[in-house]
Design a protein around this nucleic acid. Structure first.
Lengths: 258, 258
DNA sequence: CGGTTCCTTGACGCATATCAATCTGTGTGG
DNA sequence: CCACACAGATTGATATGCGTCAAGGAACCG
């Protein structure tokens, strides 16, 4: 546990949960109030932070490190829901469910995490509409991702799921670069995509044949539209590739309709 | 389209979205304001209300009828996300995503639906913390269901998914009755559970061997704990069976640990 | 009745999980 | 600097569970 100051956020506040910040638009005093009631904790890799069934007593803000949320059954099978890194938050939704945590939270690398007490968050939500609206945006964002995960597992093949994930990473890491990296271990990504590491690996071999170079966790596209075959309306909307109109597969490009 | 009065809600306000109401705790004037800005619409069965890619312009409140939300791909494959009936709402989350709708909404029977303009909802959320908190509760509730759906498809067998769904329905329709009904057509439930109607049907044959009678859409349990084998921590928490402590499988019953 | 929609049952093939072996990279200690 | 250990990733062989396709039955409604 360590002293919490606003300094910690000097860098992190810029990139928070893919553009959506818990603290966005809050006045200075409110923000300081949050920090004063929070505590900082360090975790080793592979530590359990929250177990299914635990009472959710904090909202977690990842200052630095890697964390995943997942569900497990008695047999030890696991379904990875989210993988988080710097600036992401978790348990924001669970706090408002009013039930024991339906998910596990586990560090996947050394991590420094801010614990914000759940009660403080709930009270603030009742007093501060800006904060309530920030939470609403974050939760709906997670919900959207959950919907995509559901439809991926229900109606997409493993190769399509991997391609879709790649496309998302590609856009997130800079749509105009031909290179991006896998930010997590392959086995964890595989679990997130609802397949075994073996199937993930075999899907990679397929993808390689489609103009995509894969060396360890480094991916290089041989041409700008190599992944566009995996695009859908959701992701097309967030696509920021410069010459988007030339895309042969873009679902929002009129010329590709029907 | 028809005149909207508070009369419509005299009955419905009691049962709204499984205990969580959009209008809960709102003062009379706010509630009336919502209704004054809303319009009432009637739909036949199998009409499209919203398509993937549409701009979400309303929040929908099901006065009467049945509706489903689902995602589809170009090939016509579908993943059913939610099935709604009287008192349920949809698009509450999508409105706050700030993107084209990631889901389709379709009536599955004749329905009367209240359209509440998205802009009005968004403005109200910024002015009224009670309303914002109601929305937050509803969205987190949907998110929880989405998480369960993900883990069901990732780590449960078809039979387990059906059993889990049955258990949920059993509790929802009165935990102390031995009888309950399937509130939707089997093909739709199958899609919601990520399987084909054929597999759903074969799963039913399995379930019948486990002390559960199935006649058309009527289910009868031969003993009170027949479905407990499918229980988990999530659902155990909402279990209201009288002699719960006697349950041989209850995961929150200490004697069953390990 | 006859027609339609929904559900069930059967036969079959394929895709993905499983199990097992090998390979690759990385860090550690001699 | 090499040898070794270990984790992660890949590859291969096999089996099986679910989807697919096709036919038959059941319930509902005119």
């Amino acid at each position: 546990m360590a002293l919490v100051t606003t300094d910690i956020f000097k860098t992190n506040l810029i990139k928070t949960d893919k553009g959506i910040s818990l603290f966005q638009g809050l006045n200075e005093d409110t923000f300081k109030g949050v920090l004063e009631h929070s505590t900082l904790h360090d975790y080793d890799a592979n530590q359990t932070i929250i177990q299914q069934g635990d009472t959710p007593s904090n909202l977690y803000y990842i200052i630095e490190g890697g964390v995943r949320t997942f569900r497990a059954n008695e047999d030890g099978d696991e379904a990875t829901i989210r993988m988080l890194s710097n600036g992401d938050t978790c348990m924001e939704a669970v706090i408002f469910m009013g039930i024991p945590s339906p998910i596990n939270v586990q560090s996947i690398s050394e991590s420094r995490i801010l614990h914000i007490p759940a009660n403080y968050v709930k009270n603030l939500t009742l007093k501060d509409t800006q904060f309530a609206n920030n939470l609403l945006k974050i939760v709906t964002h997670h919900y959207k991702n959950a919907l995509q995960q559901i439809d991926a597992m229900a109606i997409k093949s493993p190769v399509e799921r991997v391609g879709y994930y790649f496309l998302g990473q590609h856009l997130e890491q800079g749509a105009n670069s031909m290179d991006f990296e896998l930010p997590f271990k392959k086995a964890i990504i595989a679990s997130h995509l609802g397949m075994t590491p073996e199937t993930f690996s075999r899907s990679l071999s397929q993808i390689k044949k489609m103009g995509i170079e894969i060396k360890s966790n480094k991916i290089r596209l041989e041409d700008a539209f190599a992944l566009c075959h995996f695009c859908d309306l959701d992701i097309a909307h967030q696509c920021t590739v410069e010459n988007k109109d030339d895309c042969p597969n873009c679902p929002i490009n009129e010329s590709n309709k029907f």
